[in-house]
Nucleic acid binder design. Structure first.
Lengths: 126, 126
DNA sequence: CTAACTGTTATAGTAATTATATAACAGTTA
DNA sequence: TAACTGTTATATAATTACTATAACAGTTAG
């Protein structure tokens, strides 16, 4: 598992959280698997234990992991469909903003669709 | 011109800024037109003069208005194409995030395109 | 010129968020 | 018991957003 954090506006704990969610979704972290201890991860990333704890707390709140004092944090059984729904809402929010701007500038639906097709292919070829 | 601000995470100065940009784009504020004085607008919206000033400062920095001490702030001649380019970059950023999530969840391009067509129509019927 | 508008700037304070170090406390397990 | 886990308290610092107050400065109509 690869977690890289950088200092660019996005809080450290968010970056850690997102990296772990991604790893879980990609299957790099399997159900029941033990996460790095907050102390170890903090040492590896050279940030505070409390910052890692905050990330883990949020992951637990969101149902991705469970934590037990003295034992560690474990990947929860994942309801992929549920996660997908959450992510689809995120997609909708982004698309709504796209459409809001499009209407303001009279950008046609067709243009947006072409742009999506273009971007979709660029990313696939990475 | 209608500016409404609310206390929901988005900074006041951003809301003011965005409202004015929208008004300019829609033509509600014409080139050369005098904007409300920072003091009046602050009084109307019941927020600090300095917050309005911050919004106006950013609008000036971004080329939407020009401000002269003692006279007021005026809508700049708009290079609509330039603005459109800026906004297209915003659109691209949103779409890139959409695509990032899509790839993570194996959501097909077709699904996204259908979603955008659907959202496009819903907004048109408002 | 003065009054009444404009914007500008300085000072100082509050509040929330993010991040930190240190240290003590508590559960688990070999 | 030692060596891991996570938890909690305390204190500090930096940044962002927002505020009030007040003084300073340019513009313009009367």
């Amino acid at each position: 598992m690869n977690i890289i954090i950088s200092n660019q506006g996005i809080p450290f704990y968010e970056q850690v959280k997102n990296s772990l969610i991604e790893a879980i979704i990609k299957g790099e972290l399997q159900e029941g698997e033990l996460l790095p201890s907050i102390r170890n991860l903090a040492k590896d990333l050279r940030i505070s234990v409390l910052t890692i704890k905050k990330a883990y707390d949020e992951l637990e709140k969101d149902g991705y992991i469970t934590t037990k004092q003295g034992k560690g944090s474990f990947v929860s059984p994942q309801n992929i469909e549920l996660i997908k729904e959450v992510k689809q809402k995120e997609i909708e929010e982004h698309l709504n903003k796209v459409i809001e701007i499009s209407h303001l500038y009279n950008i046609k639906e067709e243009e947006i669709i072409n742009l999506i097709k273009y971007l979709y292919r660029s990313e696939n070829n990475e």
